[in-house]
Structures are given as C-alpha cells and as structure tokens.
C-alpha cells in the first residue's frame, strides 16, 4: 500500500527533513515494506486546505496548523497556543499529545481522520527593531505581526497594534518599516532572513505564544490497513512522533541561535512585563475555557504547565 503525503512546507524546512521524511521512511521499515509513504513533489492544495484534504482523501496523510482556518472546528486545540507553556519543543509536544487527546478528546475535533501526531514548536519570542521592551509602556503603538487571534489579543491588551499577514510577507514588511516587530520563534529569524531587521528579541518564560500542529491520515485509508500495520505505525506516531518533531524544532532553534549570534540583543522579559502579560493572558485563557462546554480548559492548562514545569500563579 502506497500512502500519499502532501507537504506544503519548503522541501528543505527542518520539520520536513528531520521529522516528516524520516517518519515516512520508518513507516516502510516497521511495516516491512507493506506500507510506504510517498511525499508529493509539491502540495496538492493550499496550506489551509490540508486538513480537509486528508479528510476528503485528496491526499492520504497531511500536516498543518490548527490556526490555519479561523472557524469553530479546533477550539480545544488552542490549549497549546497560549503563553507560558514551555521552552522545550519535545516536552511541549508530548504534553500536548497526552492532554489534548486525553481529557480534551482531540479525535472528536479531527473527525474523519486518524490522528497520527500533534505537536508544538519551541518558545515564541517578541522580536522588534525599535527599542528594548523594559516596561509594558514600551510596547505602546508598536506594530507587531502576530500569527493568529490569541497572540493578537495579547499584544493588543498591552497597547501594541497587531497585524496579520502570511509568514513570507514578514520580511518585506519588516524591512520596509511597515511593521516594527513580529512574534516568531528563533528558527523563523533565520528561516525568513530577518536577522538584519531585528534589534531586540524578548524571551518570555515558556514562550509568548506557540502554534499547534496536526499530522493526520484519511480515516478510510487507516481502516483499510491490517491490524499489524496499524499497530506498527501507531508505535512510531503519537508520543514518539512528538519526540521526533520536537527535537527537530529544538535543533532548528539551536542552529538559528548560533547563526544569529550577537547580531540581535536577546533579553528576558522584566518581571513587570511578565506580570502584565500574565494578566492579559489569564483573561484570554478564562474566556477560552468558558466556551468549551463540558471540557475543563483551565484544568487542562494547569496540567500542561505542570508537565512542562512552567510555574504560573
């Protein structure tokens, strides 16, 4: 059986090279060649379409971000998109897998597919080329590109102006002064060539934001595999995949940090800024938890932070 994997990240992206491709090869190994995975030379649709593509069978396996589509489908997935969640992508991803598939019933939100992986990247930072942020007031009026709704609400609460755009547009706009900063990972600094246009990068314990990702397979295709093959694939997916992909993110972050060197001033957020962020964040967390109905979002968040060891109170 040959499974089709549609990949939308650039072919040389660390996640593709160090997680998706090795995993695909291992599928063939653990099933003794009965199941192989073919990665398409180019994606079979736009990035936001990738969840639907696996569900509808356009491809057999896809990966993507839950925040690609702004709709009511992946509400509980937002568990992993808040601040102060963890600085290690492996621990993050494994905690995310366990808690989201456990008490938050991730499978229900991924209906029509078999969930093979859930993961997060390393901590998100706040990069800017204006000034070192020492008090919340330093953020006032700063135009910050944010990846999605939560991060937007968070920086808006501190008086900055959030702007949305696709990741490749960030370079154009940062270098032209259209935006003053961006909430991004370490890895994105070098991946999008931003080093020369960033002066200060503020780290927040556990990250100022994170993004959550899925790796899914068409349900019908999954059911069609033999029980032995399903068990073999399961063994290298889930928590095992979380470890693999988390390590790929960590390595990418380390490589980026080395490449950036001292061209950017990294500094930890001051207690004052952290307090302000926490205040804004807990309001947003409570608002999110409210909308989850029978699921206890706040308990899940507390559990998450216990797992990753980020103290917050």
């Amino acid at each position: 059986e040959e499974l089709i994997l549609s990949s939308w990240l650039p072919p040389r992206h660390p996640i593709v090279v160090n997680a998706i491709e090795p995993w695909a090869e291992e599928v063939a190994e653990v099933t003794e060649g009965r199941v192989t995975v073919r990665i398409m030379a180019r994606p079979l649709g736009t990035p936001p379409a990738h969840f639907d593509m696996a569900r509808d069978g356009v491809a057999d396996i896809t990966y993507g971000l839950h925040s690609f589509t702004e709709d009511d489908r992946f509400e509980r997935a937002k568990l992993g998109q808040f601040s102060f969640l963890g600085d290690d992508a492996v621990t993050n991803s494994q905690a995310y897998w366990d808690i989201y598939t456990g008490q938050l019933d991730a499978s229900a939100e991924h209906a029509g597919t078999r969930l093979l992986g859930l993961f997060m990247h390393g901590p998100g930072l706040l990069h800017n080329n204006q000034r070192k942020i020492e008090t919340p007031a330093d953020m006032a009026g700063m135009k910050i590109r944010v990846p999605g709704g939560y991060a937007g609400d968070l920086v808006a609460a501190l008086g900055a102006a959030p702007l949305f755009m696709s990741s490749p547009e960030v370079y154009e706009r940062l270098s032209r002064g259209v935006i003053d900063g961006v909430a991004f990972t370490y890895e994105a600094m070098t991946a999008f060539n931003l080093t020369d246009h960033i002066k200060y990068s503020m780290t927040v314990p556990g990250g100022i934001y994170n993004t959550t990702w899925f790796l899914v397979m068409n349900e019908g295709k999954w059911e069609g595999l033999s029980e032995a093959d399903r068990a073999a694939i399961d063994a290298i997916s889930g928590p095992a995949f979380a470890e693999r992909v988390g390590k790929a993110w960590n390595d990418a972050d380390i490589a980026a940090k080395e490449e950036v060197g001292d061209k950017v001033e990294f500094h930890e957020a001051s207690p004052e800024v952290v307090t302000a962020l926490r205040e804004a964040a807990s309001a947003l967390e409570a608002q999110w938890a409210e909308g989850l109905g029978e699921y206890d979002g706040l308990a899940a968040l507390a559990e998450f932070r216990k797992r990753t060891g980020v103290g917050i109170e």
Binding site: G45, T46, A49, D52, M53, D56, G57, V58
Partner: peptide
Amino acid sequence: MRGWGPAGSMVGNAVFETGLNY
C-alpha cells in the same frame, strides 16, 4: 487515480482558494 470524491474536493479547493491569493 483517487476516486471522484477526492477529485471533487481537490477541484473545489483549487477554485475557491485561487481567488483568495493575496
């Protein structure tokens, strides 16, 4: 190669998303 359902889904996505390309 993939069946009519997947083909229909692929076609629909191509039509809808192309117009949204900034």
